[in-house]
Simulated scan of single mutants.
Amino acid sequence: MKIVIVGGGAIGRLFGYFLLKGNNEITLIDIDQNTLGALQEKGIGLIADDNKHPDEAQSFPVKALSSADSLTEADLVLLLVKSQDTLSAVQDVAHLIGESCPLLCMQTGLGNLEVAAKIVPKENIIMGITFMSGTALSDARVRQGGGLARTYIGELNGAFTKRLENINHVLNRCGIETQMVKRIIGRLWCKVITYSAINPVSAILQVPNGSLTSKMESITLMKRLLDEGREVAKSCSIELVYPDLYELLFDACEKSANNLSSMLQDILNEVPTEIDAQNGAICRYAEENGVKVPTHQTMVELIKLLECWKPGVEQQ
Rank of each mutant, 00 (worst) to 15 (best):
S138C: 06
G98S: 14
Q91C: 04
I97Q: 01
K118E: 15
L79H: 04
A94I: 08
I167Y: 06
G98C: 12
L148N: 12
T130K: 02
L171C: 05
V90T: 04
T130E: 07
L137V: 11
P54Y: 11
T178M: 08
T72K: 15
N157T: 07
F60C: 09
F160C: 06
A57T: 08
M127I: 11
L148Y: 04
L87D: 07
R141I: 02
L171M: 13
F160H: 11
S83R: 00
A68G: 13
A117M: 07
G109K: 06
R183A: 13
V120T: 10
V77S: 02
A149T: 05
R173K: 14
E114D: 14
V115C: 06
K52N: 10
L78C: 07
L110V: 03
M180L: 14
T151S: 13
Y152V: 01
E155F: 05
G186V: 05
L103A: 06
R143A: 13
V90S: 02
Q91W: 00
L71S: 03
D139H: 10
L164P: 11
A74F: 02
T161Q: 12
V142R: 08
A64Q: 03
K63S: 15
V120Q: 02
F160G: 01
C105R: 01
N172M: 06
I97W: 07
V77M: 06
E56M: 13
S83D: 05
V115S: 11
D55K: 14
T151I: 09
R187K: 12
K52P: 00
N124F: 14
A159Q: 14
P61C: 11
